[in-house]
Design a protein around this nucleic acid. Structure first.
Length: 393
RNA sequence: GCUGGAGUCGUCUAGUGGCUAUGACAGCAGACUGUAAAUCUGCCGGGGUUCCCCCAUCGUAGGUUCGAGUCCUACCUCCAGCA
């Protein structure tokens, strides 16, 4: 489905955007869900991640109950298993995984960063050589191959194949890297031939203003269907650098296209991203934290750098053994409406998958609900108040 | 009752005279940002001034030895077989 972004309201003080991602069918008409509802989704939006064509521990129905818009899947993982051709033969990703809402596929660029150590990867102009973490097989991923795979997967939004440099990368490295990423974006765009699929460009440049500007302007000049800000939330990047990266990129992005902050994440980062004009986010954290026993809850805490960080409770902790209250009284998710902390504590202690399922539902719903609150605040021009309350309540 | 075997952390377990008694599980915490992650890390006899120090400790009590979880003796408990 092609996507059209409609900017509906911009917060008067902060510039935070409320809008809609409207998906269109092959005839350019508003696309519909199997139940007849329109495929229109409000932004700001949090997108749950389902790397291997499944949001871990959740059925599509359970994901849907969290009221998401777009969800993610991953090019690299599906290329490895089961293979893009098999997904294509199955009738595309939507049919294969029984998800009828929009799907965005990441390009595999992040995997080059995350799952190959420096010794195992070799980034060249042509593409990236690295070893499979599954079987040690030599792999070679190029911009053309990434786009070819995504074309076959038939996701709604394909991402350009970029290099995701570590936060520790220096200026000169980043400069060369973003220039190569631009050439890769160009090459990917050239071979992209799925008329029903959107292709997004990715802005890189670390925390440097001139690099972000350069990357953003050049990427926008290629005219993608949407734009994302990448290279943030890597290894031990500080929040300040992340926010700078957003601030230095957003001014060069067109108003009428979706803006996607890749890999983010924490409630505080969603809020700060929206304040800077970002529309959509994705992150593995709600589902991973869930599998590790953690529930997101309201409020903030500080990390060891003193930065504000998501508030959460670890349901494995002994103190919840007899806590017969929901994860959060105010939460409307399935887990909170039907189960107690004591029960989820029990499930997690017994390694029962249902515990991870309940916590995943809660955490995803938590972030989506946060987006809902931000949308309401922006619509009513009180996003600044929302921000103030977010930090002070 | 006799003969043989065995007792090591909450549980199981390594250990056959030599430095700080293994490892696993359980338990207690922590980390996690475009998912190599239902994973990883730390603690896990007691105490303290807790990247260091003190004390205790291999069923119990003695003994041999420079040195004992390990060898010897007695006792206790458990298991197996025989009565």
């Amino acid at each position: 489905m092609k996507v059209k972004y409609e900017l509906i309201h911009k917060d008067k003080i902060t510039g935070a955007r409320y809008g809609k991602a409207i998906f269109l069918d092959e005839n350019g008409q508003p696309a519909k869900n199997p139940d007849g509802t329109l495929q229109e989704y409000e932004t700001p939006m949090f997108m749950p991640v389902g790397t291997q064509a499944t949001v871990k521990t959740l059925s599509p129905e359970q994901v849907k109950a969290c009221k998401p818009g777009i969800i993610l899947a991953n090019t690299y993982h599906l290329w490895q298993r089961p293979g893009a051709e098999i997904v294509a033969e199955a009738g595309g990703l939507h049919k294969f995984m029984n998800w009828h809402g929009p799907i965005l596929t990441d390009s595999g660029g992040y995997q080059v960063f995350s799952l190959a150590t420096n010794k195992k990867k070799d980034i060249t102009e042509e593409g990236v050589h690295f070893k499979s973490e599954l079987n040690g097989a030599k792999l070679f991923l190029t911009p053309e191959e990434s786009i070819r795979i995504q074309n076959l997967l038939d996701s709604d939004i394909a991402m350009s194949f970029d290099e995701c440099p570590p936060a520790s990368a220096d200026y000169n490295y980043l400069k060369n890297s973003i220039e190569r990423t631009l050439r890769w974006a160009e090459r990917g765009k050239k071979v992209h031939n799925n008329k029903n699929q959107n292709l997004f460009g990715i802005v890189q440049g670390g925390p440097y203003e001139d690099l972000r500007k350069f990357s953003a302007e050049k990427t926008v000049a290629m005219d993608f269907d949407g734009y994302s800000i990448g290279g943030v939330a890597n290894d031990d990047e500080c929040k300040d650098d992340m926010y700078k990266a957003i601030e230095y990129s957003v001014p060069y992005l067109p108003e009428d296209k979706l803006r996607y902050l890749m890999g983010v994440g924490e409630p505080v980062d969603l809020v700060e991203g929206v304040a800077r004009g970002v529309d959509i986010f994705d992150c593995v954290s709600p589902t991973r934290l869930a599998r590790h026993g953690n529930a997101l809850i309201s409020g903030l805490r500080r990390n060891d750098k003193g930065e504000p960080k998501e508030n959460r409770i670890n349901l494995k902790n002994a103190r919840f053994a007899k806590d017969f209250t929901p994860l959060e009284d105010t939460c409307d998710c399935y887990a909170c409406k039907n189960y107690t902390k004591a029960y989820i504590h029990h499930l997690m202690k017994c390694d029962e998958t249902f515990g991870a399922t309940l916590l995943s539902i809660h955490n995803i719903r938590f972030l989506i609900h946060l987006c809902e609150e931000m949308r309401e605040a922006i619509k009513e021009d009180r996003f600044a108040d929302f921000l103030y309350n977010f930090y002070n309540l």
